[in-house]
Design a protein around this nucleic acid. Structure first.
Length: 230
DNA sequence: GCGACAG
DNA sequence: ATCTTGTCGC
């Protein structure tokens, strides 16, 4: 087994006020001055995602480890749990991380990079899901979101690889990155221990013929399947 | 105060 | 996220 803590810290919050306090306490632990794994070198890239059944109050998470060079699947794990937190914009981590951590903890390999669904530093308190998961595991993480959340951006150029800054006021908190010619961009932000340039480079490298990187596509498919089987 | 708002 | 059929296009 990898040495990822598969369980939650003892102070895991149950109320919105506690959750915001946890974010404020942990946000300074985000490491921003590491370049992260060099794009192009051998890398185990892990995608994580979560699916919900609010009727049954069930949540399923998946972690899929890929060879970043070939996108070959190396390993897949899942975990099922109870929905422990409502969806509140800005507090997504508290809804997703418990089950994601359980799935990650079942991985044999240690991820070189974790690709999350959502945001990292592009967050009202600069501590979105990807940053939170990074701080809890110590792993390099990035966030790839399908929507710009509350942030502004100019339309990037039309070609794959074109990008424009994602802005909170005048601060660049992420990037709108075109992964396919003429297709709506994805929104990339730093989670932990990776630069923004590196994050975008990895996203492009992990994207093969679809808008979303293979890591998130695989994780999305797997957690949905795990939810049905549960 | 009101609306918008990752998944 | 999830509810949901067909449909247009490469």
């Amino acid at each position: 087994m990898s040495d990822i803590p598969g369980e939650l810290p003892p102070d895991w919050p149950t109320t919105e006020a506690e959750a915001r306090a946890v974010q404020d306490a942990l946000r300074e632990s985000v490491v921003r001055d590491e370049a992260g794994p060099p794009p192009g070198a051998p890398l185990v890239a892990v995608g994580v995602d979560v699916a919900y059944d609010d009727e049954r109050d069930v949540v399923a998470a998946a972690a899929v480890a890929l060879d970043a060079d070939t996108c070959e699947v190396l390993e897949e794990t899942t975990a099922v749990g109870r929905v422990a937190f409502p969806y509140v914009p800005g507090l997504l981590a508290f809804r997703e991380i418990p089950t994601v951590l359980a799935a990650l903890g079942r991985l044999e390999r240690t991820p070189g990079l974790v690709v999350c669904d959502g945001y990292g530093l592009a967050h009202p308190r600069r501590f979105g899901l990807a940053s939170h998961l990074g701080v809890l595991t110590g792993l390099p993480t990035i966030g790839v979101a399908k929507n710009p959340f509350a942030f502004r951006h100019e339309q990037p150029g039309p070609r794959r690889g074109d990008s424009s800054p994602l802005l909170d006021g005048d601060e660049e908190v992420g990037r709108a990155l075109r992964t396919r010619d003429g297709v709506k961009p994805v929104f990339v932000s730093v989670g932990h221990r990776v630069s923004l340039d590196g994050a975008c480079a990895h996203v492009l490298r992990l994207t093969r013929g679809y808008r979303l990187p293979e890591t998130t596509r695989r994780a999305d498919a797997l957690c949905r399947a795990a939810l049905k089987r549960s």
